[in-house]
Deep mutational scan, measured.
Amino acid sequence: MATGGRRGAAAAPLLVAVAALLLGAAGHLYPGEVCPGMDIRNNLTRLHELENCSVIEGHLQILLMFKTRPEDFRDLSFPKLIMITDYLLLFRVYGLESLKDLFPNLTVIRGSRLFFNYALVIFEMVHLKELGLYNLMNITRGSVRIEKNNELCYLATIDWSRILDSVEDNYIVLNKDDNEECGDICPGTAKGKTNCPATVINGQFVERCWTHSHCQKVCPTICKSHGCTAEGLCCHSECLGNCSQPDDPTKCVACRNFYLDGRCVETCPPPYYHFQDWRCVNFSFCQDLHHKCKNSRRQGCHQYVIHNNKCIPECPSGYTMNSSNLLCTPCLGPCPKVCHLLEGEKTIDSVTSAQELRGCTVINGSLIINIRGGNNLAAELEANLGLIEEISGYLKIRRSYALVSLSFFRKLRLIRGETLEIGNYSFYALDNQNLRQLWDWSKHNLTITQGKLFFHYNPKLCLSEIHKMEEVSGTKGRQERNDIALKTNGDQASCENELLKFSYIRTSFDKI
């Protein structure tokens, strides 16, 4: 039985969820670079991206490699990797027998973001014989899940209580170790020597080791999670996991709180800001991140802002960003909400898709409305799209047979046209069989910064309504002859009103 693990408890099935942008060198404390989270699957090609990484700022997932063999891993080693800020997950990587050479110096898994409450997941690794993470000293947050690894031993010899604050939620089941077939031998045991430290858990006094050649490092209890030197002297209180010299914040392997210019500090002093819960960055760093993602459509890219001495992905609820200094300031009234469309555009074809934009005031991208039916549609669209004030790209209304009016965009005031449909149009209306009105132009103002209007096959939309939009939106004169079809717009509506004058002759039985 794995020490510190839980057996036999019912657990939810383990679901495996399925960018080499360097964020800056980590400095003297770390020998390499800070790398983003990685999802490495199918083959070993991307694994080489770990070569210079000291910190993975995010998670590391290595999974679904069915053609790899043990010899493929023999020359692979990433000794610079010290810390993973989120979680480490391995799933069905064939041929991998140990992690001792792959990650010989991995010391800390912070667990800032977890995989279903777990910071370390080893699942269905069919050839893994031992973990071998002999320098792993601290899992700051989260638990361990090690399950269905039929060859995995050296679990009962690990004292997880020396690595985690609590072992109650560890789930370590259905491994070879369960069948008591392992016969784990710690260093020196074969020669009758006791080389590794022994600890007591559940009444068992057991030597602690990761492999037959690597003991588990056990520091004096007084050192807590700070770690200790090879001689057993406690590291500085700002260290986490390990250090090369005692009581020196510049000799830590990793930091308990924050890293700044080669030393570990309790908090980031001005003019620095907390970033990702582990390091200090200056304003320029946060500003660069903001600008890199301002026009990016890459998933996970955030326009970072500053709030409460932190550089964070977005302002919290009730705050909006001051564009001059990136500071989050309290909103006066309802907060603006910028919604970034991942692929640059979004099609609204149902109430469900409209709900995804609920509360958005600025759309960074283009909207395509293609709704053919739905219950209580006008009210639903207004509830979900009615706060949109600005669209950076274009607005396209296409084959939306259920629409009679666009009044559900009740606050839309600006279409920038930074991206144009077919390279020309910022407003595009095609084949809307029941569209009769755009907006009530006596109450609604709309500016279209650039781009043209396109109207074709809107049989109940009168040309007068379209011409009014040209005047109000500032697009009059931009359109070419064929942009607004004269014969297919309003051709099934009563669009022309003329005053009919009647004269009559009164007659009676005795007068003409």
Score class of each variant (00 low, 15 high):
Gly132Val: 01
Asp177Cys: 07
Cys209Gly: 07
Arg298Trp: 15
Leu88Ile: 03
Val121Leu: 04
Asp72Met: 11
Leu44Val: 13
Glu238Gly: 11
Asn195Arg: 08
Pro249Ala: 11
His274Gly: 09
Ser324Pro: 11
Ser112Pro: 00
Glu33Arg: 10
Asn242Leu: 11
His226Met: 14
Ile62Trp: 02
Asp169Trp: 06
Leu63Arg: 06
Thr107Glu: 04
His127Leu: 14
His290Ser: 06
Gly203Trp: 11
Cys301Asn: 02
Cys252Leu: 00
Cys328Asn: 01
Glu49Arg: 15
Cys228Tyr: 03
Val34Pro: 13
Ile56Val: 05
Arg298Lys: 04
Pro36Met: 15
Val253Ser: 14
His28Ile: 02
His214Lys: 02
Phe116Asn: 14
Ile62Gln: 00
Thr189Glu: 04
Ile163Ser: 01
Gly333Ile: 05
Pro31Gln: 13
Leu327Asp: 15
Cys182Tyr: 13
Ile62Gly: 01
Ala254Thr: 11
Asn42Ile: 03
Asp247Met: 04
Asn150Trp: 06
Thr199Asp: 13
Ile201Cys: 14
Ala198Met: 07
Glu151Tyr: 13
Ile158Glu: 02
Thr320Phe: 11
Glu151Gly: 07
Cys186Val: 01
Ile82Pro: 00
Cys264Ala: 00
Phe283Tyr: 07
Asn135Tyr: 02
Arg145Val: 05
Met83Ala: 05
Pro249Thr: 08
Phe258Asp: 03
Val206Gly: 10
Lys67Leu: 06
Asp184Ile: 06
His307Tyr: 07
Cys182Glu: 05
Pro36Gly: 15
Thr157Asp: 06
Glu151Gln: 15
Tyr259Arg: 12
Asn308Arg: 11
Ile158Lys: 02
Asn242Pro: 08
Leu164Ile: 09
Leu88Ala: 06
Leu233Tyr: 15
Ala254Ser: 11
Cys286Thr: 03
Asn195Phe: 08
Leu102Tyr: 04
Trp278Leu: 05
Gly183Ser: 06
Glu124Ala: 06
Val93Arg: 00
Pro330Met: 10
Leu81Tyr: 00
Gly188Phe: 09
Phe283Trp: 09
Asp178Tyr: 13
Ser213Glu: 06
Ala190Phe: 07
Arg297Gly: 08
Ser143His: 09
Ser213Asn: 09
Glu130Arg: 13
His59Ser: 08
Asp261Ser: 09
Lys129Pro: 00
Lys193Thr: 12
Glu207Thr: 13
Cys255Thr: 00
Glu180Lys: 06
Ile201Thr: 06
Met137Ala: 06
Pro249Val: 03
Met38Lys: 11
Gly111Pro: 00
Ser237Met: 05
Leu289Phe: 07
Phe103Thr: 01
Thr85Glu: 02
Leu155Gln: 05
Leu102Ala: 04
Ala190Ile: 06
Gly232Met: 11
Phe115Pro: 02
Tyr273Lys: 12
Ile109Ala: 00
Glu147Gly: 15
Phe283Ala: 01
Gln245Lys: 12
His307Met: 14
Leu47Val: 01
Tyr118Asn: 01
Thr221Arg: 10
Ser225Met: 10
Phe66Thr: 07
Thr211Met: 02
Cys219Asn: 15
His127Tyr: 04
Leu81Ser: 00
Arg141Gln: 12
Asp169Thr: 06
Leu81Asp: 00
Cys328Gly: 02
Lys193Arg: 09
Gly232Arg: 03
Phe78Ala: 08
Met83His: 07
Ser98Lys: 04
Glu180Pro: 07
Phe275Asp: 01
Tyr154Asn: 03
Lys310Gly: 03
Gly318Leu: 10
Cys53Phe: 00
Leu131Met: 13
Val34Gln: 03
Gln299Asn: 12
Val305Cys: 08
Val265Arg: 14
Phe116Ala: 13
Phe78Arg: 02
His48Arg: 04
His236Lys: 02
Ser323Tyr: 14
Leu289Met: 07
Cys209Ile: 00
Thr157Ile: 03
Leu64Val: 05
Thr267Tyr: 14
Gly232His: 05
Gln303His: 12
Cys243Leu: 00
Phe285Asp: 06
Asp247Ile: 15
Cys228Thr: 01
Ser324Ala: 11
Phe91Glu: 01
Ser112Leu: 12
Asp169Asn: 03
Arg92Phe: 03
Arg145Thr: 03
Asn138His: 15
Gln204Val: 08
Asn138Ile: 04
Ser237Asn: 10
Cys315Ser: 03
Thr211Asp: 06
Ile312Pro: 12
Pro197Ser: 12
Phe123Pro: 00
Asp261Trp: 04
Met65Pro: 01
Thr320Arg: 07
Val265Pro: 00
Gly262Arg: 11
Ala230Trp: 13
Met65Phe: 05
Asp177Leu: 13
Ser213His: 06
Ile62Tyr: 01
Ser143Leu: 09
His212Tyr: 14
Asp165Thr: 05
Glu97Gln: 14
Tyr87Arg: 00
Cys335Trp: 03
Gly300Trp: 15
Leu89Ile: 14
Leu88Phe: 08
Ser77His: 01
Gln245Ser: 11
Gln287Phe: 10
Asn135Arg: 08
Tyr259Ile: 15
Glu97Gly: 12
Ser244Trp: 14
Gln303Cys: 13
Leu240Ala: 10
Asp165Leu: 10
Asn175Ser: 05
Asp165Ile: 06
Ala119Trp: 01
Ser213Lys: 11
His226Gly: 15
Cys153Ala: 02
Arg46Leu: 05
Met65Gln: 05
Met83Lys: 03
Glu314Asn: 11
Asp75Met: 15
Asn202Ser: 13
Ile139Pro: 01
Pro271Val: 03
Ala190Lys: 07
Pro330Asp: 14
Ile109Cys: 00
Pro36Ser: 06
Asn105Ser: 09
Phe258Met: 06
